[in-house]
Amino acid sequence: MMIDDTVGRPAEYPADPEAAASTRDQIRWMARRRREQLAAVTILFLGGALAVVMVLSIFIFVAKESLPIFTNVDQRNEMSLYHDTENEEEFERDASIFQTLDNLLGQPIWQPVSDQSTFSLWPLMAGTFKITIVAVVEGTVLSFFTAIAIAFYLPRRMRYAVKVITELLAGIPSVVLGFLGLMFFATYFQDLFGYPYRLNAFLAGTVLSLTVIPIMTTLFEDIYSSYSRDQILAAKAVGMYDYQVIGRVIIPATYGKVFAAALLGFGRCFGETMIVLMCSGNAAVLDAHLTSGARSLAATIGAEMAEVIIGWTHYSVLFLLGLLLILFTFVINYLSQILIRKWTYA
């Protein structure tokens, strides 16, 4: 008997009319199943492709909006630090790309709304870095001890409670944390530490660390809990105390993963907007004091984007800041992936 090449059914219909009808039905049914399968797989594939397209288009569109400060001559002129707004007609307007770069990387002043706008990236980067470092250091230390307590020291019931409560912390929206930082913790911290500015990098970093503690605690705890029980028992069998097991066996064996986790926390922190916007004081200053005000890249975008005119220089510069955030994210993500891979299979 021949096989019908579309549906795997006999090509000739049976002589009995009832059987022939049922064969026809079955052919139709299989054709329907086949169409459904093709449609479903196509849609699912397109969905997967859309994820890729989204990431690419986030990069492309943010980059596209930031390009005019380099490519558009009017915006370059706007960026030029040396043009005199009093005699605009006389001024020869043909600024080069270096004028733009000079504005971005030259004298460290962020002053977007004035006669001579200066968009220096340095104070913003410094502010971002200060706040993030405070957050990551505090977050890492607190998460480290919390994870150790969960993995080794706390009684079983307490472990579970602590885990659940730290996960609850992750459910608090950042704007709520920022609000409490601004309204409540700011005053108490100032009373406690006696620094001059009520809102500053230290406060912002501290509040920010609350957002990374749940993530990092979970990561650390996974690392410590998955560490071989036998190795721990072996170390205890030679008479080590718990702190020695942790310090001499577990930490040396897992510091790569811990570092990768800290890096992920870093990636989470530097792009955070609302807490920084509300708690950092938003002063674009370039100094090394943790207790002075700070302004981060993300908070700058958040604070200023609503007021700019679409398509103008300030708008483009804010997109450039966004582009920097994306690039940082890519680099940090890539590094932590490499680290995790290296230390997992090493």
Partner: peptide
């Protein structure tokens, strides 16, 4: 991993 503010930029630009 992309910071949430960047999604805002994307929303505006795209």
């Amino acid at each position: 991993a992309v910071p949430s503010i960047v999604f805002g930029l994307f929303g505006l630009a795209f």
